[in-house]
Every structure is written in structure tokens, then in C-alpha cells.
Design a protein around this nucleic acid. Structure first.
Lengths: 203, 203
DNA sequence: CGCATAGTTGACTACGCTCAACCCTGGTGG
DNA sequence: CCACCAGGGTTGAGCGTAGTCAACTATGCG
């Protein structure tokens, strides 16, 4: 299912929509900016980062095609985080006012919207769940399991391990060690950028 | 603002609503149960916990009055987590079907609903941000700051430190040590269950 | 009065971070 | 076509800090 694609919008609205390309490393909007629109990723990948005090930068989430970002623009005047493209990305722009009025007129659009929000909630909950697993190798394993259930039990790693480490709250070194340990224990096998999960000891 | 209170519903819907009391320690629904409704907390407090494999239990979030839970029931057949009352709680029950049809008829209700979801997203993002702060005392300090900005800079601790520790991903011992350390450093002062924040070094 | 539980403090352990060196690949330019 | 360089990834050594286990205190409830 694809949410909030232009096609799902009533014709009268499609004219108001715009698209935007963001090159790798570029920011779509900055934390603190005036909110103008919410976005849905069409292609590529963005990360949502927050800058706490003392130059600490935290990756809240990475968003992929079909997912929403900047949703808090609807009820807030400033973006709560920055959105940076991890890979060249393309987003659909839903201007704040447009979407607010459209939601009232087209309930099926509201439903799509809510489904996306709920999906986002679940993704965040999974992230929290992962963070609560202390042992690095177990955390990584659980992360791989989540990836696997979407695909088969073979996982294609299509982005730098650095970024995965960051997303998991680990340093690249520990992630590397965790992966080799999992391999030694027979939980996974790696070949170049493919990881296959072995369901030997799934509780 | 109070979202999704019965009063905000059209009269024709109010009849379908029910309330439910949950005693401390009791569960409102269990992870894996068939989804029947979503809930909004009226009073008390519940925690959302997930049971991963190997008897690991993780607190995803705690929900307070005005907040929503069980939202994934709308588009999923099973609850993704269990809801347990931390303190005697009272919730409004919004049966799945009722709310699904109501959303289509009453857009202002959909808007309330979305606002709650977005609020929940932000709460989860804050949680993740906290988890990324490694040093226990800094994590606790940041947590206190979030609490403080809602109230004044005096924070009333109205629940066991155990639960706070759990929510922060710390053991009670480390939380205790972190608090005394913050006190020694002059960042906070404690008197019984009141904590006052000193904004000496806010970046 | 006594028990159960929360909170605190102490000693020890374990594991992830840090810093550093090294390998390996891909891209660039001579 | 090869030499060089840059960056990601891996491996090693040492450190710091949160977890664990345990003992002790304080508080509230029967």
C-alpha cells in the first residue's frame, strides 16, 4: 500500500502538490525552522536528527519511501528536528494549509495519514525496544530479525555500517565486533553485503 | 486541550462509548490479543510493555491522562504491546468499528486523533533522544529538564524511582547515584519527593 | 511491633567506548 | 596501467562507567 501518493488525492488537490529533490547530505528542513509543510518520502532515504545542547547530535529515525516526516508541522510552528538526506531523496511536499483543509474534506485521506502516523509510532517503539537490549550482539541480532521479517531471511545491507551503528546506538567498532561474534556463534553468515539469518535459537 | 473526550464527540456517538477502570497492576489488554478498541486515558497512568523473546520485558512508554493507547488496533488485528496500570486508571473505550466510521463522518474528530498521534510520536522521540545520552547523570538531568519545562523548575516526583529508572533505561541504583551526583554538583536539590532544577549551566 | 518494599551505599565485574594501527576497496591522476 | 590516496571496515589494547550482587537504612502498612 502506498500512502498519500498524489494519485490517492482528489484531483482538485493534485495541482497544489510539489516535489522536491534533496541531494545526499543536504537538509530538507532544519530543527527550529518555521513549519511550512509535511513530507512523504518517494525515493531515497532521510534521517531525522536532533541537536541537543552541547553539540550532541542524535538520529531519531531514518525514513524511507512511503514514510512521513515533518508531521508535527500540522500543529506546531517549528520543526522539532532536522531532516537530512542519507542518500539522494525525492519527497512529496504537502503544504500545511493545503493538507489541513484537505483532511477535513477527504476522510479517506485522513485515514491514510493516520495509518502513516501509526506506522511511524511502531517504528519508534521498535527502536526503543532495541535500545533496551544491552548486549551489542543481541541488539544487532534483534535488529536483523526485524529487517528479515520484512524480506526473507537474507538481508541486503545497502548502506554504510556506520549509519546502521548510529541507528542502533553503537559505535562502528562495536557493531563490527558484534557481527563477527554473531558469525562465530553461527547465528548469521556474511558474504559481502549480504547477511543471512539462521533461525537456530529463536525463542 | 483535551482530545477525544466524550464531550468532543457528536451526540450520536456518545452512547456507544464506555469507560473502564483498571486497578494497579492489572492489564487492560495483552500483547497479541485480538484488537477490539483503542483507549484514551482519563485518569491514572498505564505503561506499555513488550515481551521480547527470552522473558525480556521492555517499557515502551507510559501514558497519562489525555494520551492514547492501543492505536494500532485500527489497522492491525493484534495488539503490539500490553497495557498495564501503574496506578489505578480510568480509560475511555473507543471500539474499533465505531471509531473507524466516526472518523469518516466527523473530520474534527480525526484532527483530534491525529494530534494525539503526533503527540505520541514526539514523546517517543524524546525517549529515544534520552537513550542516546550515555552518561547516566546527564541523561537524568535532561529528563528532568523535559519534566520541568511543563511545570516550573520544581518537579514533584509522584511515582517510584524504580519506574522512572526503568523508563530511562537505568537501574534504580544508577539512578540513585546519578541523583546524588547531580546534587553534589549543584545541578539540583532534593527535598523528599521534590526536585528543583538549577539552571546554572544550560547550554 | 514486625514485616515488606523502596531507596541508598559499597565492592566488583563486564562490556562498550576511545584511540590507534592496519587492511581493503574504489576512485583519481600521472 | 599502475601509484596514490581517502574512506569504510576490522582488529587490538586499555579505560571508564553502568550493571550486578549484597548489605544496610528508612518508610509505610498490617
Amino acid at each position: 500500500m502506498d500512502f498519500l501518493t498524489p494519485e490517492s488525492l482528489p484531483l482538485s488537490l493534485q495541482n497544489g502538490l510539489q516535489f522536491q529533490e534533496i541531494l545526499e547530505g543536504q537538509t530538507l528542513f532544519q530543527q527550529g525552522d518555521q513549519t511550512s509543510a509535511l513530507y512523504v518520502v518517494q525515493a531515497g532515504r532521510l534521517k531525522l536528527v536532533r541537536y541537543s545542547n552541547e553539540e550532541r547530535t542524535i538520529t531519531l529515525q531514518t525514513v524511507e519511501p512511503g514514510e512521513i516526516l515533518g508531521e508535527n508541522s500540522l500543529f506546531s510552528n517549528h520543526y522539532a528536528y532536522s531532516a537530512i538526506a542519507e542518500a539522494k531523496a525525492r519527497v512529496i511536499v504537502y503544504p500545511k494549509q493545503l493538507i489541513l483543509t484537505a483532511l477535513k474534506q477527504y476522510p479517506e485521506l485522513a485515514e491514510d495519514f493516520m495509518a502513516m502516523l501509526i506506522k511511524k509510532i511502531q517504528a519508534l517503539q521498535i527502536r526503543i525496544e532495541l535500545r533496551d537490549i544491552r548486549a551489542a550482539h543481541e541488539r544487532v541480532l534483534q535488529y536483523l530479525r526485524y529487517l528479515a521479517q520484512a524480506q526473507s531471511n537474507v538481508i541486503a545491507i545497502d548502506r554504510p555500517l556506520k549509519e546502521i551503528a548510529n541507528e542502533l546506538g553503537l559505535t562502528p567498532e562495536t557493531l563490527s565486533r558484534a557481527l563477527t561474534r554473531l558469525q562465530n556463534e553461527g547465528a548469521i553468515t556474511r558474504q559481502q553485503n549480504l547477511i543471512t539469518l539462521h533461525y537456530s535459537s529463536v525463542a
